[in-house]
Design a protein around this nucleic acid. Structure first.
Lengths: 347, 347
DNA sequence: GTTAGCACTCTCCTTGTTCGAGTGCTAATA
DNA sequence: TATTAGCACTCGAACAAGGAGAGTGCTAAC
């Protein structure tokens, strides 16, 4: 299957690592000097030519060195993912991670603050764009709901979930609903449905509530209308940060590349959909350049990992950067930060 | 006071308008051609040299045309602000404004959505960075508070205000406080303090609550602790948008300029403080380049206007762009959008 | 299979040149 | 006295030419 012999692999690996380290096309002479393979430049040249034929490398122009292709990065990432990543080789200090973990714990009651902190940390540590998707309310366990009357013909609904995710919503409602009525509806919901996921409640239980109608008559029918509106959440939140830092990377010294990435994160919907689709998979995932289904991201790479509550994936974080990404560091960071979040949500 | 004669003013005005329209240094020949003042280029040159001596214009290099200085723009803006702006000269269609106004009305119950819509509209219409500051909760009128017990040792507090701004907060609390206790505290607060501004409650009433202590004994003392924590809001929200669109302006064709503006809006705190300081002033305000107290904004201009609820300024919107801004359009937009918001909040 | 040697290619940088736009100054003009 | 025409001058943008440097592919020798 894999037509690469060991030597070619080592050289390819070395070239990619060197290029990630410094974005200059890598020449045969450089390889022999920097890494002591014990071959002359001419030999390396032959191998490099082969690697180019196989699509792992490419030449910007005839007399330049070689540059990895997406396929080359894929090889590199695959061998990284095959390695044992328990050892921190990313250059990120463990003290920093501990510190971050402690900080998360302090602010875990403020889900907004927590996830903006997460994306900030991701980006500032990596110099790539940090992305954080908070737990989706639909997948969370319903803990409690409360209603408040507001301005006679509106109702404020507040939903609490296990992870502390809270949604509030102001809804126009029948003015004849009194605060007492609302309290009764809330009590009913809290008693009957606590512990279920919102998705459950939405799909299955609204049907059942309709069946309960005989019990509660017209109050319940109003409650149903209310709930249907409340449980239809608008699009999830998503936190980005680090566009500014990314501009300092040599990969984005060209203004059109900045426009590219800024366009990609500008319309959140696209990325949201993409990440949503990934959120059920396990472990770190890497999408390199062209592998990306979204046009706007064809020149970028995404490293992403879900985080868990117990054994359910409930959300996701990611790093977006140039295809010439420090994948080793990015993978380590994303894995570590996801681990911190899972730990915080558990504790 | 003003050493400019009418003729010089007209020429200066024309030069600035031309430069705003197209960022090429304006030469004497061009002025004579484009605007028919009836003088030869030589005469115009003399006047331009005078204007340069007075600091209204500057030359990028000896043989280039002239470019407005900050002082020049200030002259331009002052004469704009002196004009009657009731007439829409900005090229923005009234149909669009009506549409926007209607849209605002639809989503006025969702303060987050509303203000992100505001900043989006500002930016997409102008191609500058749109900024929106939602009403500060501290200045809002307290309408209602509610508490919910959460995970035995936490309390969720929800505060509603007149403008519908709602803050929720999860607070660690004494586990012995029962939901009943919480309800009684809430009832007390709702009865006693509805209608006051949060600032009021914070500064004056917490003192009074302490005096009430005899009445309610230890429950109230707990309530006080709770309230103190609840009413200390974190920094206000601020919505930015349009960094992406700004990149298409010729003023930001240089990457370092993009970094500049992106840095400026990256740390929200600075701009927040700046705008906060302006929010008590009446009407549109323009800060041009150097006039700006914040270093990061020395090369940018800000056009801003407060919006009202009744006759109180409760929040603020702004446009940030290059000093070569279409001030006429920007002023019109900011004024109009602020008007729409005020109208929506009233209705 | 590996290596040395060599001609070749391509980019980057520097230098020189031209062209055009626009200026400032001076002397002539109304 | 204000305005204008004329002219020499300056500067930047655009283009061309040439050399340096890095790296390649190919061939023949080891």
């Amino acid at each position: 299957m894999d037509p690469l012999d060991e030597r070619s692999k080592q050289i390819l690996y070395a070239i990619i690592q060197s290029y990630i380290n410094k974005p200059d096309p890598v020449g045969s002479r450089f390889v022999t000097k920097k890494y002591s393979f014990g071959f002359s430049p001419a030999t390396i040249r032959n191998i490099m030519a082969d690697l180019e034929d196989m699509g792992f490398l490419s030449q910007p122009h005839t007399s330049a060195g070689r540059v990895p292709t997406d396929k080359g990065y894929r090889f590199y990432v695959n061998s990284l993912l095959g390695q044992d990543r328990k050892i921190n080789t990313s250059g990120i200090e463990t003290a920093f991670i501990d510190n971050f973990s402690r900080k998360l714990d302090e602010i875990k009651n403020d889900i907004t603050g927590m996830f903006s902190e997460v994306s900030n940390t991701l980006s500032s540590m990596s110099n790539y764009v940090g992305v954080a998707l908070p737990p989706k309310p639909e997948k969370s366990h319903f803990t409690r709901i409360d209603f408040m009357k507001y301005k006679s013909d509106h109702v404020v609904a507040i939903i609490l979930t296990d992870e502390g995710v809270m949604k509030h919503k102001i809804i126009k409602s029948d003015p004849s609903l009194s605060q007492d009525d609302l309290n009764r509806i809330a009590e009913y919901l809290n008693n009957e449905y606590a512990g279920r996921t919102i998705d459950d409640i939405k799909s299955v239980l609204i049907g059942r509530m309709k069946a309960d109608k005989m019990l509660w008559d017209k109050l319940i029918s109003r409650a149903i209308t209310l709930c249907e509106e409340i449980l239809s959440f608008s699009e999830s939140d998503i936190y980005f940060s680090g566009l500014h830092d990314v501009m300092n990377l040599p990969d984005f010294s060209d203004i059109s590349r900045i426009k590219e990435i800024s366009k990609a994160i500008k319309d959140k919907h696209t990325i949201l959909r993409l990440l949503d689709a990934l959120s059920d998979n396990e472990g770190v995932q890497v999408m390199i350049g062209d592998e990306n289904p979204v046009t706007e991201l064809k020149n970028l790479s995404i490293v992403t990992s879900p985080y868990k509550e117990g054994d359910r994936n409930i959300g996701l974080i990611a790093l977006i950067g140039p295809t010439r990404m420090d994948y080793s560091k990015a993978i380590f960071m994303v894995e570590t930060v996801a681990g911190c979040i899972s730990k915080t949500l558990k504790g």
